[in-house]
Design a protein around this nucleic acid. Structure first.
Lengths: 202, 202
DNA sequence: TGATTTTGTGTACGACGTAAGCTTACAACG
DNA sequence: CGTTGTAAGCTTACGTCGTACACAAAATCA
């Protein structure tokens, strides 16, 4: 319905696209970190002058916001209709966390730039459905989901924010195992806490 | 034992101190935001050239790290020895959150720069004691505390990261009430979840 | 073909972090 | 009371960043 190919009719054909820009930005981010993600560097990556980017996005912050939305979309999962909400919630948390740890330099970005609210709701519709199936009011469902999301993000911040081997004598793998265990324990506490809470309100 | 007054003996007397720098940095941060906290601006605030700051802190990032440590210290509370750990944990969460909301532009900083680990342990010693009094192993106590801390920080990020009135038609006060309610509910879920978890391990 | 429209480019400006070397203001010593 | 040593603050300068603005290029339409 909208233009998905760059060609839109009049004018010089576009070599750049929002999607191409976002993809290149994520490549740079993953490979070289947030500081390397400058407008000039991004232009170079795309074979284009830095200023050309401004035809498609108003400023650097918009690039970062677009990256955030794109990455968050990576984190959503399909849930089949039979899944009970506590399991669905835990699976969302795992998936969200996996995405974050797959893009460590992006974690501070997700922390700073909230995901577009309408996009977020759209992406989480399937998860919300699992709550609705249990006759849990939408407001309570949102609180539970957001609480878990906030925990996952905060946890990922702690993990990627601490350069490996700070307390020394910890190999990366034991550190990873430590964070995994911590994550699981905190998540279980929160999900089971909501479970009791939402049951009692019946 | 160490020099607490600027006078240390030889050389030109210092007009700057680490503490004065940190205090000025927090003033600027609160009043004008993170972007305004430049080395030149910080120098001006202290009546000093920007480069003078480098005699006391190696770079801008060290300033930010010092701000983080100072602010986190603001968040610790005294707990009298009779307080059971779930209450102590909830009170720490409230206090931490109050500090964060008192310095909104600092929240992304706390998210990005982890609190110095030894300082953190020292500040939280009182809280850890409440767990020890219940014969909870140190590792489990740390997991619970860190999980809650991570939730509080993530929640504050969501609150300050969303410019007031995004969904529109929400006055600041109803928005604040919404976040308060959400915070309380998520915190209750997590704390009660840990309560059950740690009880069952007995 | 020429007008119109859209996209990409070149240049330039002000602000930033900070490296290097210099000056200033003390204490200690003779 | 000079002289000297030393720590703190200052001046200047460089490279890099985001981005404003005016212009060139490349397509369609009449």
């Amino acid at each position: 319905m909208n233009q998905s190919a760059p060609r839109r009719g009049r004018g010089r054909p576009a070599v750049l696209t929002r999607e191409r820009i976002v993809a290149a930005a994520i490549e740079i981010l993953d490979a070289e970190g947030l500081d390397a993600l400058t407008m000039r560097r991004l232009g170079t990556q795309l074979g284009v002058a830095a200023m050309s980017l401004y035809r498609h996005l108003p400023n650097r912050d918009a690039v970062l916001a677009a990256v955030v939305d794109h990455l968050f979309a990576e984190a959503v999962i399909d849930l089949d209709a039979g899944t009970p909400w506590p399991e669905a919630l835990a699976r969302f948390a795992d998936s969200y966390r996996r995405m974050l740890l797959g893009h460590p330099p992006a974690v501070p970005l997700l922390a700073t730039h909230p995901v577009d609210i309408d996009l977020g709701l759209e992406l989480l519709a399937g998860l919300l459905d699992r709550f609705e199936a249990a006759a849990i009011p939408r407001q309570a469902a949102l609180t539970a989901i957001q609480s878990v999301a906030v925990y996952v993000l905060g946890h990922a911040l702690a993990q990627v924010g601490t350069p490996p081997g700070t307390t020394a004598a910890e190999s990366d793998v034991t550190a990873a195992a430590f964070y995994d265990e911590w994550f699981k324990t905190g998540l279980r506490a929160m999900v089971s806490g909501f479970e009791r809470q939402l049951d009692q309100e019946r």
